[in-house]
């Protein structure tokens, strides 16, 4: 039996959930530098489901693909610490400014090169919440798609049974392999880092990272080739430039407006008995309540 290839699509995102006070500049715009870069939460659930699939199948490997700048190699290392076998960083300036359609094109080209049997990704990324790249990628590589998946029920080399979490309930579906699965945040949380794997892979680097550390002449990859994280460019995945970046993106940002809040004339109160009493009497009098 051939090994089942499982691919996880993961993204490094700014942590928009913890927007602290220093994350906003005085002019009301976002200070992106102040937001820590994290592993997109739903993608961690997807990694876990991929690892569960591998555990059950036995004869399988888990690969991770991420698209982003050099520092996104952190996503590959984190995935490997938690049990992924190998990872690829899709990085090229030509990807900059890609909307979801251009992004899914780039990813689909990389997917063709990897040729997986199953793809897991998070339902959505917290920096845009679009939930679009999964289904768009599935369409481009002509995979079946199962979205909003909460639980891996059963898996064999030919088919996969999945429980979906919908607005008002659940649904269990059987899908043939190959398929792309988008994983809901309510799925099992990802297993912790494995200490042995952290020790083994903490020096894993991309070539660009080694250069940034002024170690491009080190013997690292020669001695321990498994520590090399592959970097793929537009050329590696044989992508057509015109489908990438701003020019390959059908959606254009026309304007960005800062929302200036016109201060409403309001009643300012404290938590004192008298103030709360006044508030409730006011509301009752004006028949807003009661």
């Amino acid at each position: 039996m051939e090994k089942i290839k499982i691919l996880v699509l993961a993204k490094q995102v700014p942590d928009t959930r913890n927007v602290g006070k220093d994350a906003m500049k005085d002019d009301g715009t976002v200070n992106r530098g102040a937001l820590p870069a994290i592993y997109n939460p739903d993608d961690l659930n997807a990694l876990e489901m991929a690892l569960e699939a591998k555990d059950r199948l036995g004869n399988a490997e888990v690969y991770v693909l991420t698209m982003g700048p050099t520092r996104a190699a952190e996503i590959i290392r984190e995935s490997i610490y938690r049990g992924a076998d190998e990872g690829y960083l899709l990085t090229d300036r030509k990807f900059a400014g890609s909307d979801t359609l251009a992004t899914s094109y780039a990813i689909s080209q990389a997917v063709r090169k990897i040729d997986p049997d199953l793809i897991f990704c998070g339902l959505q990324a917290i920096d845009g919440d679009t939930a679009q790249v999964g289904p768009q990628t599935a369409e481009k590589v002509d995979f079946q798609q199962v979205t909003y998946v909460e639980k891996l029920v059963e898996i064999s080399p030919n088919q996969i049974t999945l429980k979906r979490r919908l607005e008002r309930g659940v649904e269990t579906v059987v899908a043939p392999i190959p398929a792309l699965i988008t994983v809901h945040g309510s799925a099992n949380p990802c297993r912790a880092r494995n200490v042995k794997r952290v020790m083994q892979y903490k020096h894993a680097r991309t070539l660009t990272e080694l250069k940034e550390e002024n170690r491009e002449n080190s013997e690292l990859f020669k001695d321990r080739p498994y520590l090399k994280i592959e970097e793929w460019s537009v050329d590696t995945i044989q992508a057509d430039d015109t489908h990438l970046g701003l020019s390959g993106s059908p959606t254009k940002v026309k304007t960005i407006d800062n929302v200036v809040l016109a201060q409403k004339e309001n009643v300012v109160l404290t938590s004192s008995d008298a103030d709360v009493e006044e508030l409730m009497v006011d509301l009752l009098k004006s028949r807003v309540i009661g």
């Binding site: 700014p14 928009t16 927007v19 994350a23 906003m24 009301g28 715009t29 976002v30 992106r32 937001l35 920096d127 845009g128 059908p250 959606t251 254009k252 940002v253 026309k254 304007t255 960005i256 407006d257 800062n258 929302v259 809040l261």
Partner: peptide, 13 residues
């Protein structure tokens, strides 16, 4: 749009 007091207008020309 992401993370703050920003409203984006998107078009598909």
């Amino acid at each position: 749009a992401f993370g703050g007091n920003i409203i984006a207008t998107i078009v598909n020309p």
